[in-house]
Design a protein around this nucleic acid. Sequence first.
RNA 1: GGAGCGUUGGUCAAGGGGUUAAGACACCUCCCUUUCACGGAGGAAUCACGGGUUCGAUUCCCGUACGCUCUACCA
Length: 535
Amino acid sequence: MRFKDIAINSPPTTNIPTPLYLRLMTETASNKKVRVRFAPSPTGGLHLGGVRTVLFNYLFAKHHGGDFIVRIEDTDQTRFVEGAEAYIFNTLEWCGLVPDESPLHGGPFAPYRQSERKPIYRQYAQQLIDAGKAYYAFDTSEELEAKRKEIPNFQYNQTTRTVLKNSLALSKEAVAELLAANTPYVVRICMPENEDLGFTDLIRGEVHFNTSQVDDKVLLKADGMPTYHLAVVVDDYLMQITHAFRGEEWLPSAPVHVLLWQYLFGLDQMPQWAHLPLILKPDGNGKLSKRDGDRLGFPTFAMDWTDPKTNETTIGFKERGFLPQAFINLLAVLGWNDGTDQELFTLQELIEKFSIERVHKGGAKFDYEKAKWYNQEWIKTLPATAYSHIVAPLFEAKGIALPDNDQFVAVLDTVKERCVFLNDFVLQAGFYFQTPAVVDLAAIQPKWDVKKQQFFVDLIAQYQLQTEWNSQVLEQVFKELATSQQIKAGELMLPFRIMLVGGKFGPAVFDIAAFIGQAETLHRIQQVIAQLTIA
RNA sequence: GGAGCGUUGGUCAAGGGGUUAAGACACCUCCCUUUCACGGAGGAAUCACGGGUUCGAUUCCCGUACGCUCUACCA
């Protein structure tokens, strides 16, 4: 939201500078401690959009010295997935976003799983029915489905509810009878006929709806579980949530929530809403989905997720070789920036600089290239000691034995600027610790001749005599030999590199030779010569 | 269909009544580097359209187009 949007809404007579007004509005609205919640459904892996929602919640809370709560919204038992909740907490831990309250961390407002709060919601639903703000509806799902098929754009609303099976259309006696017979029913909100429902969104400014356009949403399902609509409002109230951030896809149902607040707890108690822009597909249009990642070859989940039913694993950013610092960073700047040129932020800096007003209104297409850049930057920026413990197992998995830690870290630091992913270290540094398994012979072969072969044979002889083994000496011997044989050193450098490294990459060759030692250097040269043929 | 929301280079974006309209990613050229990266210099490329308001609109207003989200006893 821009300052001007606020200015429009503020009385023209107040001469409070807009930034202050804005601050009053968002920060000290009611002198209450800031409390935000992330409320995921445990239905699968957490994708980019979800993590960004957590992140913005977390940053806002911590920026204001408030609490960050995680509440599990598991009211739909048909969609419940085993392991999904644990996955969510593992992801938060990896990202370094520690909840102050959650089913795992406890807290004064437990339980934090909606399935464990079932009785609470019924009581509020009853309150609404008693006040005439909600009603029983006995129509079965099948009946309604048939209606939708039959009537285009069918909605359960003020015009249709009079002819459907509910406590508004039926006689009191009929309703009592149905209830007594334990007929399954849902509770629906009774939307007023023609009222303007508006609220101030922290990102979008004033947003308005007319109640005539919104249908009578189900509040309590036939199984006694609340729908999201009832549950968020009740729990946000009970858990004293002051600011509620969620994806933009929730905007159309905001009027239902506003109305519920009005009926149940009073608008002055309502948290301030902010509807976050969506993360879009890189190509085409629409919300980024797991399928897009699969299709385009990049992760959309934070960490690997294995579906317990299909046993199918979806790759995550973590396993792809992303640093959590980079992951957090790239998500934070997708739809937000601090107004300066800065692009690299630590979590601490994000907490300090974050402001919900600077979040964009429009969705952002996800750019994996840029995401990779962030990771590369973070790998480069951080000392290797920060991630050597993550990288070491990757080498071990390939059967590469590692030297002592100091040496290992030193090697990582020398090659880190060539790594986009943590996994790249295996290729970029593996040759320091192990003879290359594959050597790019094809890159040497075409220009290989008797003279070059002789050079390397002689080089082996020369190097064998060396008692001092450091890069300066090795380079000097190499060049002198080249000169004496009237071959340009440049023509020999690449073959030499490939012999030692396996391919056309890596840091200075003589440094590598110095590191791997005399015996190993000679061994690698010999081995490759043996595999080359002279045309 | 309806409602709501959105729209600055290919992408992320700063900015906002008068500017040569920042910066980053990607792309191209060159330098550095006897490899690959890193780094450095440069290049190409943009305010969706139409009306207003105004001396002046990318910026403010109104339309239009386009896009997205929702339209479930899912969240």
